[in-house]
Design a protein around this nucleic acid. Sequence first.
DNA 1: TATCTAATTCGATATTTGTTGAACTAATTA
DNA 2: TAATTAGTTCAACAAATATCGAATTAGATA
Lengths: 101, 101
Amino acid sequence: MITTTFKALNDDTRRSIMELLKQGEKSAGDIAGEFNISKPSISHHLDLLKQANLIKAKKKGQYIYYSLHTRSLEEVFRWFVQFKPDERVHLRKPKIRLVAS
Amino acid sequence: MITTTFKALNDDTRRSIMELLKQGEKSAGDIAGEFNISKPSISHHLDLLKQANLIKAKKKGQYIYYSLHTRSLEEVFRWFVQFKPDERVHLRKPKIRLVAS
DNA sequence: TATCTAATTCGATATTTGTTGAACTAATTA
DNA sequence: TAATTAGTTCAACAAATATCGAATTAGATA
């Protein structure tokens, strides 16, 4: 649901979490350590991002590692494209591309 | 501010208004007529979209016409691109393009 | 001028959202 | 087994948000 995705992205902390995860997977505690916010609050943010399929969780022992899962970003991407009809946008990497400009 | 843009986009009615305006400029009353929501509420939504530079207003007599103003969509677009590094995305239409796939 | 229409602003309200400390679950370690 | 650690869930609360009817502003028209 695109509503869920937009809701998840409508928060500074959550967008920062996503940018943080560009570095690779991180445990919930590591993520919480980067913000001046309580762990329950971070846990809640992670839950909303997970609900929106923007991140995924993998449990390892007593740790839970979170990483980017940008599948649903494509959906939002597509939503934006409708407003920019004169621009060519590739959502998928083409097999062969020859571009001259 | 990207925060303002994400906030503006985080609402079904406002996203619908944007899609409606793809047809061209419409007066506030015309827009309100498309939704089962009071005019004050629509007026508020239009204000938030305007604050985010997603639409612009032009007064003509006693009417106010709203139309798309997708400049700030580019900013959000760019925000998304950072999460899709292996895909080529053109925000601007290139002068010449030869593509084979 | 008085009236009508288009749209916004105001004031109030119900709902949603972000936040916290405390309690809880599950895995590790002494 | 008892204690520790990582993380979530719970309950409560403050702030933000969407909504509405009423009041207000501004332009058009009789």
